[in-house]
Design a protein around this nucleic acid. Structure first.
Length: 502
RNA sequence: GCUCCAUUAGCAUAGUGGCUAGUGCAUCCGACUUUCUAUCGGAAGACAAGGGUUCGAUUCCCUUAUGGAGUACCA
């Protein structure tokens, strides 16, 4: 009974993959890899009306960018393909027919308009219209009609669907790995459509048939499917197939307010909800997040290791992940925490890698950036990366390494530039001119010595010095800045400041 | 409305039938004899409510409240 683990991620290509979808994919991937199993991507495109061009490629690109590629799927054919339901179209009808033959399903001829009418009518009376045992004989279907009438309608080319005949008076005990046992009374179930008038199966039929045909051992999907679990279990029973194990992941909720995370929340609060950009919607990748960040915060959304560890690489996740540590309740999405993760990962990145990412920004800002060699850019990056959350913060944090400050922060000037500051800076210039070893450490020793010898205060020297070098009271260690921009430029900046500030 | 699921601080969570309920993010304060959105240190802050069961419940059961999902010839 030790079946090979095969899981699937089965999105429908109706648009860009939402971050919640990526989380579902990630958990499937982790589970598969942990058990040396196979991660299948299946495209559920049974609804032709909602098909969106490019969505499938987007899904594939997103999974690849996150570093969680599928093992089998479109373009990576295994033995149970094809992996797009539209390409498996011819396969489903026979299964629907088999259920009709077994008396587990039936033909229904009711028009959508008629059903809509019933629903509205019931709603107006404060009731819910359920197409099932209690009214199916009053509707137009092969159970209420004679065999001849049914055949007549079919021959006449009337539109019909195939509905599942859900049983009466049964209590179902469903198993969910995350939630345990769930009791369902079958009387409240409706006779779901399995096969549509357009010749396509509905999600429910296609899903169960494909999971069976693809030997899926574990179905890990979003909580929005929990209400369908009864139907799916009933279908497996009707086909006399073994059902896979089910695990329903908690939903991802909006950062504030109620409801699940939506595209609008991202726009309103300024954070991405998609892994990659899609038209006007910004993606995590384009917003400057690393894939490590996305994987890490997604993993902790609805799951935790039971320890205090919060930083996980993909490989660590594979060995630590487990379905029984997945939470039952919805996980609120926290954009601040995602930034915290990126801040962590930016510090871990190698300086040369960050320098490569920074170069295009430098080019955009100033052509002369070209003249700075890699070693210099890497050195700058090493000094500022711990204060950055994104590579896009780098310029703001380091522009003074590349260009002479044009203005001085007014508030800082008012606070730090005293009448005697000019003359102190003048003295400092003459001290700096005498120093030939312009290393940070040596500069610090010499300047501090000079300050003590002359009984000056550190504040009176260091703050104005920083102001003249940087243009504001920010940045890393002053002596590191001096060393990096060099003797000539340092002195130039101080002299320029003395002239401008008096 | 009905069905199912959930409920530990602002947020994410750990944990236990019985010591001061642990951690991270955010917040506030301090330190780093100069800056900081960095780092370090510290502070404040929670078991939804009411009933049971029990010597004892945040932990088990019930009710209520709140939140979520589903209720389509969409997935």
């Amino acid at each position: 009974m030790n079946q090979k683990v095969r899981v699937r991620f089965a999105p429908s290509p109706t648009g860009p993959l939402h971050i919640g979808g990526v989380r579902t994919a990630l958990f499937n991937y982790l589970f598969a890899k942990q058990h040396d199993g196979v991660f299948v991507l299946r495209i559920e495109d049974t609804d032709q009306n909602r098909y969106v061009e490019g969505a499938e490629q987007y899904i594939i690109d997103a999974l690849n960018w996150c570093g969680i590629p599928f093992d089998e799927g479109p373009g990576k054919e295994g033995s149970v393909g094809p992996y797009r339901q539209s390409e498996r179209k011819s396969l489903y009808r026979q299964y629907a027919d088999a259920l009709v033959e077994k008396g587990k399903a039936y033909y229904a001829f009711d028009t959508s308009e008629r059903l809509d009418f019933h629903r509205k009518d019931h709603e107006a009376k404060g009731k819910t219209f359920i197409y099932n045992w209690h009214n199916r004989l009053k509707l137009v279907n092969s159970l209420s009609l004679s065999a001849e009438e049914t055949q007549q309608k079919i021959d006449a080319g009337k539109d019909y669907v195939i509905r599942f005949k859900s049983p009466k008076d049964e209590t179902l005990l469903l198993q969910d790995t995350i939630r345990g046992t769930i009791r369902i009374d079958t009387n409240i179930l409706d006779d779901k459509v399995l096969f549509k008038a357009d010749g396509m199966p509905t999600y429910h039929l296609a899903n169960v048939v494909d999971d069976h045909l693809m030997n899926i051992s574990h179905v890990i999907r979003g909580e929005e499917w929990l209400p369908s679990l009864a139907l799916h279990q009933l279908l497996y029973n009707a086909f006399e197939w073994n059902a896979p194990e089910f695990a329903h992941l908690p939903l991802i909720m909006k950062p504030v307010g109620k409801g699940k995370l939506s595209k609008r929340d991202g726009q309103k609060m300024g954070f991405p909800v998609f892994p990659l950009s899609w038209n006007e919607s910004l993606g995590y990748r384009e917003a400057g997040y690393f894939s490590e960040t996305v994987v890490n915060f997604l993993a902790l959304l609805g799951w935790n290791p039971g320890t205090e560890q919060e930083i996980f690489s993909l490989t660590e996740l594979i060995s630590n992940f487990s379905l029984d540590r997945v939470n039952k309740s919805g996980a609120r999405f926290d954009p601040d925490k995602t930034k915290w993760y990126n801040q962590h990962y930016i510090k871990e990145k190698a300086n040369d890698e960050l320098a490569d990412l920074f170069r295009p920004i430098l080019l955009e800002k100033d052509i002369s950036a070209l003249s700075f060699d890699n070693a210099f850019v890497e050195r700058v990056v090493s000094l500022i990366k711990e204060r950055a959350t994104f590579v896009s913060d780098f310029w703001q944090l380091s522009h003074y390494f590349f260009t002479t400050p044009e203005h001085y922060d007014e508030k800082a000037v008012r606070k730090q530039w005293k009448p005697d500051t000019g003359s102190i800076m003048n003295q400092l210039v003459s001290i700096l001119k005498e120093i030939s070893d312009f290393s940070s450490q040596n500069l610090e020793n010499r300047v501090k010595q000079w300050i003590t010898d002359n009984e000056l205060s550190f504040g009176k020297v260091m703050a104005p010095l920083r102001l003249l070098l940087v243009g504001a009271l920010q940045g890393p260690h002053v002596f590191d800045i001096l060393e990096l921009i060099g003797k000539e430029e340092s002195i130039k900046r101080i002299e320029k400041g003395i002239v401008e500030l008096g």
